[in-house]
């Protein structure tokens, strides 16, 4: 299946935006300007993007502690998202959520989540709209390899399966849950296989390859829209940096870290594929690169210069205004 030039450029833009953004956040964190821990999405850009290019604004995603990439791939407002990470008044959540709790319902981003695995049932809930009101929507849960071991995730897969709900369980297998490798933490070692046990079609694919992810997403989304129920997509990719910024990563070898950058760079893989197939020219992508650098640095500068929330906001939005 051939993707249009526009769709390819859009995909590249989203992936590259994630990369540039996260590299910038890494620098900012090192400078001490970021108020809390951050978990970078670098290395996994093709996953969020491959899935989200198949979604509309009405479709929803639920995200994780490593959520910046999901936000960008779902086309959240970059400036407001950056402000949220810096806990600013004009951030997407008024600065009260921060990096691990960014949400943007206007584009169907139901929230990052600091409780590992908790987002899976939330995605199932959004998918209930198809059943209850007949709305045509697809709901995605992004789930880490580590999170795949939570009871909430297993229960969600079963519920979505028995109710035939339009959910994509997207497993981002980056090989690690914090400082523990998947060989240790995942019984049977086969996340997709375990999902298949719930009676849903499941894929295991190269999560560094946008095209592999996107193709599976397109099929799964189509089935979901037709009312044929959930699918699981296990995307195997690499986490380039530490679990969080500041993680010294003693448990990984220098060779591993060096080879992943060479062999598992979703942006290089994408470029090679589209250039070889003559779908897009390199200079078009270079132009996108330049544009994104200035977009991202201006968003970060703007965020850093914008005000923190007014202290009066401390107790707002606990309940509906005026109801308590």
């Amino acid at each position: 299946m051939q993707l249009s030039r526009d769709k390819l450029l859009d995909a590249y833009t989203r992936m590259k935006k994630i990369r540039v953004f996260e590299e910038t956040m890494r620098d900012e964190f090192a400078k001490g300007t970021v108020p809390a821990f951050i978990h970078l999405y670098i290395g996994q850009e093709a996953i969020a993007t491959g899935i989200c290019v198949e979604l509309t604004d009405q479709d929803t995603i639920s995200s994780t502690h490593r959520g910046h990439g999901h936000c960008i791939a779902k086309k959240s407002n970059l400036e407001k998202m950056t402000m949220e990470i810096f806990c600013r008044a004009d951030g997407l959540c008024g600065g009260k959520g921060g990096s691990m709790h960014i949400a943007d319902l206007s584009v169907g981003m139901l929230g990052a989540n600091a409780i590992v695995g908790a987002n899976a049932p939330i995605a199932v809930g959004a998918a209930l709209k198809q059943r209850v009101t007949g709305e045509n929507l697809v709901s995605v849960a992004f789930i880490g390899d580590g999170a795949s071991n939570q009871g909430a995730v297993f229960e969600s897969m079963n519920l979505a399966s028995v109710l035939k709900l339009p959910v994509l369980f997207v497993f981002e297998n980056n090989g690690y849950a914090e400082f523990t490798g998947i060989d240790y933490h995942c019984g049977g070692g086969d996340i997709a296989g375990r999902a298949g046990g719930f009676g849903m079609p499941s894929y295991k694919l190269d999560g560094s390859d946008f095209f592999a992810v996107q193709e599976a997403a397109a099929e799964a989304v189509e089935r979901a829209r037709k009312g044929e129920g959930p699918s699981a997509i296990e995307c195997v990719a690499k986490r380039w940096y530490g679990h969080f910024e500041g993680d010294p990563q003693h448990y990984r070898t220098k060779e591993e870290l060096a080879t992943i950058r060479r062999d598992f760079d979703p942006l290089i893989i994408f470029r090679q594929k589209v250039e070889e197939a003559g779908l897009v020219e390199g200079k078009d992508l270079d132009m996108i690169d330049e544009d994104l650098s200035s977009q991202v640095s201006s968003a970060v500068e703007k965020a850093k210069n914008s005000p923190l929330p007014d202290v009066k906001e401390l107790t707002t939005n606990v309940y509906e205004e005026g109801s308590y």
């Binding site: 914090e178 523990t180 933490h185």
Partner: peptide, 21 residues
């Protein structure tokens, strides 16, 4: 508990990666 040593299942690594987060 989770990652109370840290570094299990990480290839040849045979140390304590964290000793708890």
């Amino acid at each position: 508990g989770e990652d109370i040593s840290g570094g299990r299942g990480c290839g040849d690594f045979d140390g304590e990666a964290a000793g708890g987060p």
